[in-house]
């Protein structure tokens, strides 16, 4: 059964030869059965053919190139050579490629020295006293803590456990410190950075591609702040509009905020468009209809109107994607 929508999605791949030979043949056969899709395909290939024909005539004629070369030579003459060439000259004729092992060995030695020095310093100073506060911020299970607790329970008699726990200074060793925290009724925890890293990892896994990190790095700080505000507004809208008894004034705040955000969204989208920042442009474009709809809600909206917006919000998972877009960018090693 021919599906025009599906076939047209393949047209770009077919035109640019990105389908394999077998898939390409199947797609061409599919096109034969549908005059509309075939016309679409032909017009695409024709546009490219005409493009090639026209652009070839825009190329300069032969007499242009000697001048081009002369100008390039002049620019090269005035330009300073790369640092590797200059270094090679300075050393006295060493080939840059010969230099590479020496530089690598030097760097490795320097790194080793820095590592050794840091390790020595840590041994001498020990963990910082403020580390406990950071460590006890969020409760998450730690297998090491369990084993230490078990060891304490096994080696000491029941009455002595509390004595041992209070006698150990929490700053002595991270494992003991976490165990102490657990014994005080607080579950052990991991550092904030680790938690954030886990979130980012989850995002990457859930999206299943390399896009999120790259996309996040393309958003400006202003766009990220805008996403955060929009996310809060949409959450507020979703919760308020879902309430059973909806008063007319309930959504006044969201509508007002939506107008402001809409204005900001248009500016940011245009900016992203001009800069050719496609991920930002796409994210902002997907947000805009919602802002517009909420901003244009009547004073007394019907439950159908609100339900429609809510349903679209849910279907597009906009709040979640805004959360991802406004998440900080981290490099996962």
């Amino acid at each position: 059964m021919h599906d025009c929508v599906k076939t047209r999605e393949l047209l770009v791949d077919l035109v640019f030869d990105e389908l394999g030979p077998e898939a390409g043949r199947r797609a061409l056969l599919e096109l034969e059965g549908c005059p509309d899709c075939q016309a679409q395909y032909r017009s695409m290939t024709e546009a490219l053919r005409v493009f090639d024909q026209v652009t070839d005539t825009a190329m300069p004629e032969e007499s242009y190139w000697p001048g081009y070369e002369t100008r390039l030579r002049e620019r090269l003459r005035t330009e300073r050579p790369g640092w590797t060439l200059r270094l090679a000259d300075w050393i006295g004729g060493f080939h840059p490629l010969m230099m590479r092992p020496l530089v690598a060995v030097g760097l490795a030695l320097a790194l080793l020295a820095v590592g050794w020095w840091t390790w020595q310093r840590r041994q001498a100073v020990g963990p910082s006293p403020g580390a406990l506060d950071v460590a006890t911020e969020t409760p998450t299970p730690q297998p090491k803590v369990e084993s230490h607790d078990e060891v304490v329970a096994k080696t000491a008699k029941p009455g002595e456990i509390s004595k041992i726990r209070t006698a150990v200074h929490p700053a002595v060793h991270p494992t003991v410190r976490l165990a102490a925290a657990k014994s005080n009724g607080k579950a052990p925890s991991v550092r904030r950075e680790e938690r954030v890293r886990k979130i980012v990892e989850d995002v990457v896994v859930s999206r299943g591609s390399d896009q999120p990190l790259i996309a996040a790095s393309l958003f400006t700080a202003e766009t990220i702040r805008h996403f955060e505000k929009a996310q809060l507004m949409l959450r507020s809208f979703r919760n308020t509009s879902a309430a059973k008894r909806l008063a007319a004034t309930d959504l006044a705040y969201e509508r007002q905020l939506s107008r402001r955000l809409l204005y900001q969204n248009i500016l940011l989208r245009r900016d992203a468009e001009m800069k050719g920042n496609l991920p930002a442009e796409e994210a902002l474009s997907s947000l805009e209809p919602f802002l517009l709809d909420i901003a244009n809600l009547p004073d007394n909206p019907s439950s159908g109107e609100l339900g429609g917006i809510r349903e679209r919000l849910q279907r597009k998972e906009l709040i979640a994607s805004l959360q991802i877009s406004s998440a900080p960018t981290y490099q996962i090693p």
Partner: peptide, 13 residues
């Protein structure tokens, strides 16, 4: 490009 080069959709030929 199709738009600017005037390539028609219905009859590309």
């Amino acid at each position: 490009l199709r738009e600017y080069l005037g390539v028609k959709l219905s009859a590309a030929e």
